[in-house]
Amino acid sequence: MQAWIHAHQQALTLVLKKLRSAPFAHLVMAAVIGAALSLPAGLYMVLANLGNAAADIETDPQITLFMTLGANDAATKEIDNRLHKHSGIREYRFVSRETAWHDLQERNGVQGALNGLEKNPLPDAFIVHVSSSDPATADALQKEFSAWPQVEHVQLDAAWVKRLYTLLKLGEKAVMILAVLLGFALIAIIGNTIRLQILTQREEIEVSKLIGATDRFIRRPFLYAGALQGVLGGVTAWLILFVALYIFNQSVEELAQLYASDFRLHPLGLQASLILIVSAALLGWLGSYWSVSRYLSKL
């Protein structure tokens, strides 16, 4: 156990010594990795903000139930009962066919068109406000209501919310794809810088192998170096986003004031920041594992 701790300590010391001896090279690498990582992380940040904004907006999907024309009072009463007891509904309102007909006749411009009709063609209707803004819930309710007796047609009035959510989902997928692609690129980039380090330490590796070093012993300091490189890159990405956000928010603030809104872009949360840095470290680790293993297998 103690030997194990010491081995890691030794490897870490070696890596830190290297960092101190070539700070500029590490800084450049951190900038490259940071810039690459800031793309998916930044996109994620924008999406997260949009998602929050969408949730804030009174989306309030509205559903209209149209009864059949022949529906009698009992049937209407039954629906009223059911709506009353339903938990997924915030409020609802009954619009009788008479009221609707009256409203329509009041409206300017339609007068002429309606003159030809002597009978009221409108059905009774319920206007329902759903308590959740999640479009999936509204969809489910629409299906449920459609199956109720004497209900002719159920109209969901939340298409744009649905579209927004679909777009956000699409955006999340884009972030994933971008992150995976850039992840591969970063593994290759970090792997390559580690390869250069390996080449400068060729003799040490060769001699160590000849006198009985395991692959694990040889790999260890490089893995640390790769992970450290990744962490530095991850932190750089975070800083890039932070600064970009600061600049962006200054303009957003002016705009928001014009619209009397307090909308702001928020930085990455603690969890997202941790994920960013940990995955950067992991990519560095993988890149260097790949690089050292490739070198060792050729020995």
Partner: peptide, 8 residues
């Protein structure tokens, strides 16, 4: 060789 052997 000692480092390789875990002697520290």
């Amino acid at each position: 060789p000692l480092a390789i052997d875990g002697v520290a």
